[in-house]
């Protein structure tokens, strides 16, 4: 338990070297991989909370995401099937015409840390690719990201294409990124919006009920 506490503290305090060192040690102990996973998820949640409270900034989200990925790289292979519980599946992509990935990537790692199984279909994603991914992965949620103004109508069109494919009623759609707002959400026909990753993860969990 002490190591978990130390891992949590160093992770939340952004002490990368120390957090990775402790995680490497802890992961080798009995039941250590599960402990590392749970602790890192808790740490990511705390980082998200600090971000929403205005104490942490995008810089901390990026650094935390990088730490999480580093630690998961040597932790996940040690976990047994069934030990990684998922609370739902999300197909995630930056819409056609927009190549911005930073916001999407921050959101992705935070969503994964919160237990969502994220299918990342990339940037500049054609409308049809969203449809194919929905058919293939049967997600509860679809997340669409855009940073540039062109993305607003690209999201609208993507949602129309999903509707035309008869898939709209099966999913909830959350939009994210620098250009979204309540008005944009209504304009494009999405179910939720978030202009930061922490809020996005919180709302996604709500959408999953």
């Amino acid at each position: 338990m002490l190591m978990q506490k130390e891992l949590l503290k160093s992770f939340v305090d952004m002490d990368e070297a120390e957090a990775v060192r402790i995680a490497r040690e802890l992961v080798e102990t009995e039941g250590g991989a599960v402990a590392v996973l749970d602790t890192c998820k808790e740490a990511m949640e705390e980082v998200g909370r600090l971000f929403e409270a205005g104490e942490y900034f995008l810089s901390e989200l990026i650094a935390a995401g990088d730490m999480f990925n580093q630690i998961m790289e040597f932790t996940l292979p040690k976990l047994q099937g069934g030990e990684v519980a998922s609370i739902g599946t999300m197909v995630l992509g930056t819409v056609l015409g927009d190549v911005h990935n930073i916001g999407k990537d921050i959101f992705k790692v935070m969503a994964e840390a919160s237990g969502i199984n994220v299918i990342d279909i990339g940037i500049d994603v054609p409308h049809e690719k969203f449809v194919e991914a929905i058919k293939e992965h049967k997600p509860e949620i679809v997340g669409m990201s855009c940073l540039i103004t062109l993305g607003v109508d690209s999201m609208k069109r993507t949602i129309e294409v999903i509707e035309e494919a008869g898939l709209r009623d099966d999913i909830k759609i959350i939009i994210g990124g620098g250009r979204v707002s309540q008005a944009v959400m209504e304009h494009v026909g999405a179910d939720a919006w978030a202009d930061d990753a922490a809020r996005g993860v919180r709302l996604s969990k709500e959408l999953l009920g």
Partner: peptide, 9 residues
């Protein structure tokens, strides 16, 4: 004025 508003309001 937010360009997103110009598009969607």
């Amino acid at each position: 004025i937010d360009v997103s508003d110009i598009i969607s309001l």
